Amino acid sequence: MKKFLTVVLCCFSAVALAQTKGVVSVVKDPMIDSLIAKRIELSSKAAAGAPGILSTGKPGTTIVSQMGYRVQIFYGSDRREVYSAQSKFNSSYPELNTYITYKQPNYYLRVGDFRTRLEAQRLMNELRLIFPTLFIFREKINAPNLNYNND
């Protein structure tokens, strides 16, 4: 009889202490839904192209990231000197992209997006008289468009 009462009391206490179902209310800003929708739209546009291609938003232009080479033409701790070297380079070679990075305590000016080391070496040979300290670095580049002529 004691065992029966113990089992019955356990069952009633389990039912009495059981949790009841509740309602969860989510409070959020309505802008979150619009941001999520924009993110989905942007990622679907990028996925519509080829994998590894990021769209810049301009029609007909894409940026393909891959490993390549850049030529470092200047480094120093003075920001004004780096910007003057950049303008000096841009006046001579406006078709090549320039990239300024800062790693404490120096600024680095690297130029070009070259697929092969040979292309970077050609530019380095042209610039040797203008810029005394030149180095070639392998890093992730924005791959240039290939222009094929059907001649």
Results as ranks from 00 to 15, higher is better:
64 V>A: 07
69 Y>Q: 02
33 D>W: 03
47 A>C: 02
40 I>N: 14
59 P>D: 15
57 G>C: 02
27 V>L: 11
45 K>T: 04
29 D>Q: 08
71 V>I: 02
66 Q>V: 03
29 D>S: 12
65 S>N: 14
30 P>M: 05
24 V>P: 01
26 V>C: 04
34 S>F: 09
40 I>W: 07
47 A>R: 08
31 M>F: 11
41 E>L: 13
50 A>I: 00
58 K>S: 10
29 D>K: 02
47 A>F: 04
37 A>T: 08
40 I>F: 11
42 L>E: 08
54 L>C: 05
74 F>Q: 05
28 K>D: 10
61 T>D: 15
39 R>N: 08
40 I>R: 10
75 Y>W: 07
48 A>T: 05
64 V>I: 12
73 I>L: 08
37 A>I: 05
40 I>H: 11
78 D>L: 06
72 Q>V: 05
71 V>N: 05
42 L>M: 10
37 A>L: 09
47 A>H: 03
69 Y>L: 04
37 A>Q: 14
49 G>I: 02
44 S>D: 15
42 L>D: 12
56 T>V: 11
78 D>C: 01
72 Q>E: 14
31 M>Y: 07
77 S>I: 11
58 K>D: 15
26 V>H: 04
42 L>A: 09
73 I>H: 07
47 A>W: 02
49 G>E: 10
69 Y>C: 04
46 A>Q: 06
51 P>T: 09
67 M>D: 11
38 K>Y: 12
76 G>N: 00
55 S>K: 02
40 I>V: 12
54 L>R: 01
67 M>G: 09
73 I>G: 05
33 D>M: 03
73 I>T: 03
69 Y>G: 00
65 S>C: 03
41 E>Y: 10
25 S>F: 12
30 P>N: 14
64 V>Y: 06
60 G>P: 01
76 G>I: 00
